[in-house]
Design a protein around this nucleic acid. Structure first.
Lengths: 336, 336
DNA sequence: GTTTTTTCCTATAACGTTTTCGTAAAAGCA
DNA sequence: TGCTTTTACGAAAACGTTATAGGAAAAAAC
């Protein structure tokens, strides 16, 4: 703000503002000698172009936004890390907005961003599927490039970065069964999301593949309320005919499952085998170490940001309907 | 970008642009009737002021930046969560920059931000103490408000949000000793930071208070290299005269300590008592559950953002040298 | 009924860039 | 030489706001 402006540079150099601007932009219209003079003085005064003036005139800037449900979650933190690694290297600035699974908040952020503050947007949507129209509206209003990752709106035509949720869930469930589980349950969210539906599909197909009859009570719906989740799981695992396997499709549900088993004196993996969908670094240190299906969170962020910037810089229009699928990683530890 | 502008609003209303601007700004110079007309049309067209034009003219905007070493770390993630909760409610936009403990990167970000993109800055500095001059230079160049949190440059006069590292370390160490540890060690970083120095001071004073003679080898210096840390700790705990207590002053060192004890078949807490400085949510699920000294990360973020915005909006000049101290929380579990 | 004040609005100049267009001088070419 | 082309720059308009100064009409004051 307090720095020197192009006008002052021009004055001191005895040049016009437009010449200075072009020289700094390395335009072919400017002679090498002049460019050198300009650059040197600019360096001497540590000249930095005013981004507001520049963005205003060019009608776009090098700022993007990331909208995610939560940052206190290893998956999203890793994704942001991946995004930032790209935006940093490409000299973009990254805004961050947290929705905390609140649809109204998500809409509000989107509406706020219609002001044109940014040149592109990376999103992982919040829980629930009732409405995705605000994304469409945002796009209609701004025509700005949008990239979704992980939690994507399946019905909308936007570029997406996702994982092979179906295949890897099928795989994980199969491993539970092969390890001896006769009745593995799926612990998932009450909120219907594309990702969790895919995981469920993989889970059910694995059961079918191994000749296990699926019944509705094998899907355990948990919530955002950890206390309530504990109660739900405890009740189910206190039954005589309790499950002997858990595929926890959400990070925090694996932890609660562990707690319930510990408190009910159910031995893992003898009584209950567990695989958790999680990126927790402490998975290996739990007792027993937790087998995990982990998402390539950092790479998802990287891919999403790379795609977005490509779209912003129009190096590739083809990207518009790209769907990038990255593989989840299954790590078998002592819990199965 | 594609939205309607003030000029078009003015045209359609048969008013001048300045009238529209003032009406939208709820100026007293404009009659209630006119304000109503303007507001209604603005709403109808979903008018959003162009932030670049506005910021350019006003010479400031509602954007701030957060510079932190890492986001894949519960402490910083929580802090960002706290910051965002404030910036959201105050309608500020939050940029995020990660230094990954790289001083050059930190300097580069700061220099980039000298362009005037933001109106304020929240920082937790990266490892090492050799240079803090870039912060001073940034301030001289921009005169922008700056707030540090947790990892603060002790020698610079800026507002800070920290925790009672000294007192709580003294307390934690005392608990280790009272629990029976005759020779508790401090596992800390090689990088000299204000925070870790304070923790060390608390640790040493606790030893003295309980009549335990301190020797240099009771400070175990770990690095960023997890493998190396493992080797260092393993070597020390393999000795005949091994320590019987650990105060791990950095999150990840507690985990490594657990691993080493597990592999060396040292029972926690019988053979070794452990307290870790960490915000890990899984601390309670480790085997045995880890006693923690945790930082009020979310609140630190909240306080820092609140302070910053107060300074930006000049509601309080007095904030300039504020130091806010929040208490760490000691949670005793099974590891001592 | 004149002066003063208040009310409500407009004109215009910024803010610091980028871009379009114009043009003098230099260079190329026959 | 005279013509065209290229090179290297400048003038000025634009981007969409906000702030300052001013002014006409209405209201208030004397």
């Amino acid at each position: 703000m307090n720095g020197i402006s192009m006008i002052q540079l021009a004055k001191e150099l005895g040049l016009s503002v437009s010449t200075v601007s072009k020289a700094l932009g390395d335009s072919h219209e400017i002679s090498a000698a002049t460019k050198k003079r300009v650059l040197e003085l600019a360096k001497k005064y540590k000249y930095k172009p005013n981004p507001f003036a520049s963005n205003l005139r060019k009608k776009k800037g090098k700022q993007i936004a990331v909208i995610i449900p939560d940052i206190v979650n290893n998956f999203f933190a890793l994704a942001v890390d991946g995004i930032e690694s790209v935006t940093m290297s490409k000299h973009y600035d990254t805004f961050i907005y947290l929705t905390h699974e609140n649809l109204e908040r998500e809409k509000a952020v989107l509406e706020h961003l219609e002001s044109g503050l940014i040149s592109g947007l990376i999103i992982s949507v919040c829980n629930g599927r009732e409405g995705y129209s605000h994304f469409q509206e945002f796009y209609e209003a701004t025509r700005l490039p949008l990239v979704f990752f992980d939690r994507v709106p399946d019905l909308l035509q936007f570029p997406k970065v996702i994982t092979n949720n179906y295949e890897s869930s099928l795989d994980a469930t199969s491993r539970l069964i092969k390890a001896g589980s006769k009745r593995p349950v799926l612990v998932t969210t009450t909120e219907p999301m594309f990702t969790s539906m895919e995981r469920r599909r993989g889970y059910q197909d694995a059961l079918e593949k191994h000749g296990i009859v699926f019944t509705d009570d094998m899907i355990i719906h948990c919530t955002d309320d950890m206390e309530l989740n504990y109660a739900i799981l405890r009740k189910i695992f206190s039954q005589k005919k309790r499950p002997d396997g858990i595929f926890a499709s959400i990070e925090k549900y694996a932890i609660t499952s562990y707690q319930v088993c510990k408190d009910l004196k159910l031995a893992i993996p003898k009584d209950v085998k567990v695989i958790g969908m999680t990126n927790l670094r402490t998975a290996a240190l739990l007792n027993p170490s937790l087998s995990t299906l982990s998402q390539p969170a950092f790479d998802m962020g990287k891919e999403a940001a790379g795609l977005l910037i490509k779209m912003i810089e129009k190096k590739s229009y083809a990207a518009a309907n790209d769907i990038i699928v990255l593989p989840n990683e299954l790590t078998i530890r002592d819990s199965i």
